[in-house]
Computed example of a mutant assay.
Amino acid sequence: MNNAINQPQTILVLGGNSDIARAIVAELSSPALKTVVLACRDEASADSTGFADHVKVATVTFDATDHAAHAPMIEAVAAEHGDLDVVIQAFGQLGLDVADDPVAAAQLATVNYAGAVSSGLAVAAQLRKQGHGTLVVLSSVAGVRTRASNFVYGSTKAGQDAFATGLGHSLHGSGASVMTVRPGFVRSSMTEGMEEAPFTIDAAVVAEAVVSGLKKGSSVVWAPAKLRGVFGLLKFAPDFVWRKLDS
């Protein structure tokens, strides 16, 4: 359970090698933090380095497409390490070249959306049982309004975002909560080599926004914050303008 000044003691990362998630953990780190659990598809690939010396780092196997395994895994982690104070849903794939491949597109949706649903519900059940804890969902501004250049990926993030915000409403009054995070383009290993978009930021900036949001009890966080206003306008831009911006 978070300590008296709302610092987490146990953090679970679904997608344990995510640069953004690891930056969030670093930003949340304090003397109160006892355990970080990294959940990766290949448990042996989990990078357990870079954490504070006093933090116990554990690893578990997590496959976003193995929906039946999600609830038992969450329950097992809580049974071994205690209540989960913060769970970061940070797995996902970009899938930039799947628009002409129906099978690959469906596989992307299975990871990014269906995996988010099954793992999110499993986490919510645990947090509701505890009566506290926050699920941090790394969504994307790509889901706010999909672009022709990555509309399959954007649609999966739109689904994940809608699910996360709805799940947050369903947990109201339980003591548990969901915070949906909408970053823009973030410099990371996933985006390495890609052309940067306007308002590009580093993972540390997302982490700062997330921790600030957790302290405030925010349900939605934009990173950088100015994207909230930008997309508030772009959502209503005429189609021809939107296509021009994507060209």
Rank of each mutant, 00 (worst) to 15 (best):
F236I: 12
A162F: 11
G159Y: 08
L121Y: 13
A204R: 12
V123D: 02
G92E: 03
A209V: 11
V57F: 00
G159S: 10
L33K: 00
L84Q: 02
S219K: 13
G232P: 07
L94K: 06
G213R: 00
E43V: 14
Q9F: 04
T200V: 13
T10G: 02
K244P: 01
L245A: 13
D202H: 10
V13L: 13
A207H: 01
D47G: 03
D63H: 06
N17K: 13
V136G: 04
R228E: 15
N17Y: 13
D202S: 14
D63C: 03
V178H: 09
Y113E: 12
A204N: 11
W222K: 05
V137R: 07
A106K: 10
A4M: 13
V55I: 14
G92S: 09
P198T: 11
Y113G: 02
A21S: 10
T59F: 00
L233P: 01
W242F: 14
E43C: 09
D83F: 03
A23I: 07
S18Y: 07
F151C: 11
T10F: 04
V220F: 04
K216Y: 07
C40E: 13
V111E: 06
V141T: 15
E27A: 15
A109C: 14
C40Y: 02
R128F: 11
A64Y: 00
G213Y: 01
A52Q: 06
V37K: 00
A109K: 11
T191C: 12
D83H: 07
F236M: 10
S174Y: 08
A90T: 07
V230D: 07
K226L: 15
Q7K: 14
S140P: 06
I5Y: 02
D19P: 07
T65V: 09
K226S: 14
F236Y: 14
R187V: 15
L108D: 08
G95S: 07
G50T: 03
A158Q: 11
V181W: 01
S140F: 08
F231A: 04
V60G: 02
T59V: 12
K129H: 14
G173N: 09
T200Y: 01
S188P: 06
A26F: 04
F231L: 05
S212P: 00
I88T: 01
G15T: 08
D239A: 14
K244W: 15
F62E: 00
A39W: 03
T156F: 05
I74H: 00
